[in-house]
């Protein structure tokens, strides 16, 4: 995944120092305060999970914590809404399959 910097709108804005986290083992760049979903979209990755019945891909949709379509497994925690969870350096984010089980 390349860092498509141009999807970030930086006029009048300093995001500070970039850091990395991983999505299904691939490196994604983020800046402090960005949500996981936002950093992923800026990296050109829209899919967050696969549904339980139809195994369809889903991703960031409502952007306000209502639809639950952007949930992923974040550092082992399933059902994490990536639209409202801040990306942190070294975070391990994985595709969630189905409803997700807490282990």
């Amino acid at each position: 995944m390349s860092d498509k910097r141009e999807q970030r709108v930086d006029d009048g804005l300093d995001r500070g120092r970039a850091f990395q986290f991983s999505v299904d083992g691939e490196t994604v760049t983020a800046y402090p305060g960005e949500s996981i979903a936002a950093a992923m979209l800026a990296a050109g990755r829209a899919a967050a999970r696969r549904t339980a019945k139809r195994r369809e891909p889903r991703g960031y949709h409502c952007g306000m914590g209502v639809c639950w379509d952007c949930v992923m497994v974040v550092d082992g925690v399933t059902d994490t809404r990536t639209c409202r969870t801040e990306a942190k350096p070294g975070m391990r984010v994985e595709t969630q399959h189905g409803v997700g089980q807490r282990t």
Partner: peptide, 20 residues
């Protein structure tokens, strides 16, 4: 994925200054 609500697009822009 990539089909985003209008509110979601606004929040991405306002909250993260990122376009989808």
């Amino acid at each position: 994925p990539g089909v985003i609500s209008a509110g979601g697009a606004q929040n991405l822009l306002k909250g993260n200054r990122i376009v989808p």
